[in-house]
């Protein structure tokens, strides 16, 4: 099964012999993504699969500059979105694709969908965003951890004892009250993700459950992906 990009692949990138599997876990902050990925990763390695991980703002090229830019809050939404795109493609070309070529399972902690959703809310043009990310590789599966806004809020507060500026959408001026802004912003994100789900076909996972219940469902679904990808070997 040859891998494909949504549009043309990045120049110079060959899609032949990408033997691994790209599995994306999407969901809001505090939806439990990193815990689930850590457990999946360990489980897969126990089974004998090599695992590589990727996530946003982790590129060698601009990862640290992006983190700095987020602190300063001085870049326009479009600049931020191009900065994120640079970070994304650096990782796609320099780590995700090489890992897939080597036959790894790549577990991606978020992917282009989060980037598109965040930007759409900030007035990004949908056609522009689709084109920007058209060179992205189509994952073998995308699992979206759906959590109610109430649960997100509870988990965020009990873990960090504070709300994050960006995750509360404070840059949007929805409300001067952080608590209220968080709720309004997360609701908007849900609406965006629902639109994206129809376009890109995520598998929705109910994440309003215990860690182990979610993990169990994820493993069952990942097993199906592995059968498809690795059966020919």
């Amino acid at each position: 099964m040859k891998k494909q990009c949504y549009g043309n692949p990045p120049p110079g990138v060959k899609l032949e012999n990408l033997r691994g599997a790209l599995i994306v876990i999407e969901g809001a902050d505090s939806s439990g993504r990193s815990t689930q990925i850590a457990e999946l990763s360990e489980w897969l390695e126990q089974k004998g699969y090599a695992v590589a991980r990727s996530g946003l703002t982790r590129s060698i090229l601009v990862g640290s500059d992006l983190d700095k830019a987020k602190e300063g809050n001085v870049l326009s939404p479009r600049t931020m979105s191009l900065f994120y795109a640079t970070d994304f493609y650096d990782q796609l070309e320099n780590s995700i694709i090489p890992a897939l070529r080597a036959g790894y399972i790549v577990l991606a902690d978020r992917y282009i969908y989060t980037l598109i959703a965040r930007d759409s809310i900030r007035g990004g043009n949908p056609g522009w965003l689709d084109s920007l990310y058209s060179q992205a590789l189509m994952p073998n599966a995308v699992f979206f951890l759906m959590t109610s806004t109430r649960n997100l809020m509870e988990r965020t507060l009990s873990t960090h004892y504070r709300l994050d500026y960006w995750e509360s959408g404070m840059d949007l001026g929805l409300s001067r009250d952080w608590y209220e802004s968080f709720i309004l912003y997360q609701r908007r994100l849900r609406t965006e993700f629902k639109k994206l789900q129809q376009r890109y076909g995520f598998e929705m996972i109910n994440a309003n459950r215990s860690v182990s219940a979610i993990q169990k469902e994820l493993r069952a679904r990942v097993d199906i992906v592995l059968e498809r990808v690795y059966q020919r070997a």
Binding site: P10, V13, L61, T86, E93
Partner: peptide, 10 residues
């Protein structure tokens, strides 16, 4: 480190 795509994006 730059590829044609990241060169362009940066």
């Amino acid at each position: 480190l730059l590829t044609p795509t990241t060169f362009s994006l940066i």
